[in-house]
Design a protein around this nucleic acid. Structure first.
Lengths: 343, 343
DNA sequence: AGTGCTATGATAGACGGGTTCTTTTGTCTA
DNA sequence: TAGACAAAAGAACCCGTCTATCATAGCACT
């Protein structure tokens, strides 16, 4: 004989059968009570509920999931929870998930090493998820060849489009155009670029936007500088530019933190912002950290992105099947770090 | 009749039975292959593996969980993902979870409204979790009366101790003592306090530490100021103090962001930091946002906290049953925002 | 008495993976 | 040729929830 059904409530979670035994009713009367179905006598209902309470019954997630084939959770795979991009992704998705009464199953891959989409998918597929979301903040080695698992919605959060997978992201290319247009309108032409690490996908697209904007106006882009997203790296780059480039009138830093560092460097070098040099950033992330934030920047609607990501990963209503690439535009926030260039 | 077993592989995930049918073997021969058990002919094994590959078999999480009563995931319930305290909690727990090859099931409660522990527990208990972690960044209305669910490990991340639940947190009281001792050693006595919102548990303990430290030295604490953790609120408080208190020699801001704002305010008011006024903060959170961060602060080991939280929520080895209160000390980081007071 | 409705029980099947028990098949030896 | 033994495969069931049938008893109303 296989395992005998055990009646000791101590070592095993309380099941409906336990409750039924305790209340002196049948198992599916307990089911009726648990699911609020009709045709249950009021006295019986109370007796069952009392038994549930006393025994500490909670319906088995595994049993229920097995039955109705749904997990009510969406899988999210990121490399580093604390990076601004990932954090804002979690935030946006958490909002959307809550609206759908859904939880998030979060897996953090190695903070430093890159991971393949196949590996991430395999890992997530073994978890209780109705859909898989992968944050691809750096190019995965198998992006081109990757095939999503059949039968489960998959969304990659990245700017790169994929022929067989829906991708969603804030428009990290368009934000550059917004900022560059703003600077062009003010009259700037010599606009230097301080980027993030070159392996970053966001960096690649923000930088491409900067470069294309210049080339469209037939301006030769000066050598871009590479930081690591931190204010200190922005400071160093700003210092370098202040000392070596007397023709520039504006700096586009690929995020606010580096922009903030660059501003400090310019001021330490005796240059005024925005009178001598205009500075712009991206993310609108400084408010909590810097008093009187004056930085012109681009703000992304992260909750909208979260909603799009979520709803494409867990397609409730016939949205399935279509592979799309969604880019959510940012909004230009003009503050006082930009002005008409000195003549 | 109940639901008929369906054989259309299209609408249903691929099960072992499907693989067995395709490979022409029995279901548990597939099981043996899947779990690498012996007593399977090499040819049979290859045939089964080929069938698995072709059909895209992946073992059902629900079936497996139902069988062995484990979910390999820990539940985490917070009010707002983006708040520094919660973010660092997620980060720390994610590390610990990864070490145990475990996922995190994340639920974000209302960002603004407080929630009861009973409600949070009920919500988490319906999810695939082997343990429940609740971030209580503001006092829950039912903290005193709360009883944890039997049969599942529960940890509350908060400074308040609870008689029936293990609580873990960074030592938000001790960090104040570290900073105050540092200021005392330099010779400061008139130390003003800029706190976070009074409903915050962290605030309550950081403030209590400041107050107790002063009273232990028989110094009457001057009225504490209340901010909202943001740099702007720190700026306003700093401005107020600069204008109204000419006897203070140091400011203790309850987080780095407010400290950063306060420093800006002092400088705007013509006071030098640290020559005229010393400033300290807590969290060591500025590095990414501010170039040349000079703020003396306290850094918490968030990964250690995450590990403690995780291991008490999911007790692998006999640590169960004991209700403890763990407070993880911070580390004083002395930079250059503190100096001997002017005489 | 017959009809219809409600409350409940009894039984069973389905979901998918894993364990145990049993049976079949194959090989080697006496 | 029979017996011993091991390898391989099958059959049965359990985990817990939910639902689909039936069956039955009680009650009210016509």
């Amino acid at each position: 004989m296989a395992r005998r059904p055990s009646n000791d409530t101590s070592s095993r979670p309380v099941s409906m059968a336990d409750v039924a035994r305790a209340a002196g009713v049948s198992q599916q009367t307990v089911s009726r009570v648990a699911n609020g179905l009709p045709n249950v006598n009021e006295q019986t209902r109370q007796r069952v509920q009392a038994a549930m309470q006393e025994l500490g019954f909670r319906p088995s997630y595994a049993g229920r999931s097995l039955r109705d084939g749904r997990y009510h959770s969406v899988g999210l795979c990121v490399n580093d929870v604390t990076k601004f991009g990932n954090l804002s992704m979690i935030d946006g998705i958490a909002s959307a998930a809550r609206e759908h009464n859904c939880a998030i199953t979060l897996v953090e891959m190695s903070k430093t090493e890159e991971f393949s989409l196949a590996e991430a998918t395999r890992r997530m597929a073994a978890l209780p998820v109705d859909g898989i979301i992968i944050g691809m903040s750096r190019m995965a080695p198998d992006f081109e060849t990757f095939d999503p698992l059949p039968g489960i919605g998959t969304v990659i959060v990245t700017m790169y489009a994929h022929p067989r997978v829906t991708t969603v992201d804030s428009d990290h290319y368009g934000c550059s155009l917004l900022l560059m247009d703003h600077l062009f309108e003010l009259g700037h032409e010599q606009i230097r670029y301080i980027g993030g690490p070159s392996f970053s996908v966001d960096e690649q697209f923000r930088r491409a936007g900067w470069q294309d904007a210049l080339e469209r106006k037939h301006i030769e882009p000066a050598e871009p500088l590479e930081g690591d997203w931190s204010a200190n790296s922005g400071y160093e780059a700003g210092r370098y530019l202040a000392e070596h480039d007397r023709t520039m009138t504006a700096i586009y830093a690929a995020n606010d933190q580096m922009a903030n560092g660059a501003i400090a460097a310019l001021r330490d070098s005796g240059l005024r912002v925005p009178e001598d040099v205009s500075v712009v950033g991206v993310d609108d992330s400084l408010d909590d950290f810097v008093a009187h934030n004056e930085l012109t920047t681009v703000r992304f609607d992260l909750h909208q992105r979260g909603r799009e990501v979520f709803e494409h990963a867990v397609p409730e209503a016939g949205t399935a099947g279509k592979t799309v690439a969604i880019r959510i535009p940012g909004q230009l926030i003009i503050r006082h770090s930009t002005a008409i260039p000195r003549t």
